[in-house]
Amino acid sequence: MSLGITVSGLSLDYGDTRAIDDLSFELDGGKIYGLLGRNGSGKTSLLSMIAAFRRQTAGQITVDGNEPFENAAVTSQICLIRESGDVFETDTVKNVLKFAADFRPYWDADLAARLVDRFELPLKKRVQALSRGKRSALGVTLGMASRAPLTLFDEVHLGMDAPSRYAFYEELLNDYLEHPRTIVLSTHLIEEVASLFEEVIIIDRGRLILHEPADEVRARGVAITGRADAVASFTQSMDVLSTKQLGGTSQATVYGALSDERRRDAAEAGLELGPVPLQDLFVHLTDNKRGDR
């Protein structure tokens, strides 16, 4: 079971500050989405409204066609895991898992036990005594073992060390393949997790910048490598995001897809064309100083 999300004209104000500004998009169920945005772009606010943690100022959110706020039938299907953690600080890890097992209708105790083992979570230790990495691992365990049809991870894995993060990505993908559901991952570690995304949503200053399949987003940019003078000449009239040079060879990252004719030109000039990291495109798309996107 997986749930789709429809957001229409959504706005959220914190006093005089508009955190989400007339946001509209539609997410199909049964996919892994990457929610990207700079600090303060409104990612957490958006996820909080989808998970019924807070009510919007204007507009509408529906999850599987229903408003989630104060709708028990919907909220029981949604699991939002935030970096701050929403668990009893003075409880032991074991009790925190027990609490989740009591209230999460799709809770998988076997998966929870396996993740506890993999992340080496100390069951008898109190949450407040856990390191930041272990707290993150506990959040990941709660989110995955909940098997909620709509699972939202908000920067939850930032505190984990690299091996633990890669373990999380592996476990998430494997479990998703066995139990397809809608997963939204909000993260700043874009390159690490980019291969998981089927679609990418980029928001900035509360507005939607982009919502496209991840492959299409990647096709928006090209890395051009070759002799420095040839690269400079080829990219003269293009939107160059960055340039690296090593000896006589340079690599330019450009924004914008290349036509077949331009690709032929590149080949004739002895230039190699490659994919652009999603992170570079994200930086470009959310660079407010550039203005025009």
Partner: peptide
């Protein structure tokens, strides 16, 4: 202060 945030985070509505 203690229960409400955790209850809502576990899918429990404020009404319940």
């Amino acid at each position: 202060t203690t229960y409400l945030p955790i209850q809502v985070a576990h899918g429990i509505t404020r009404s319940i």
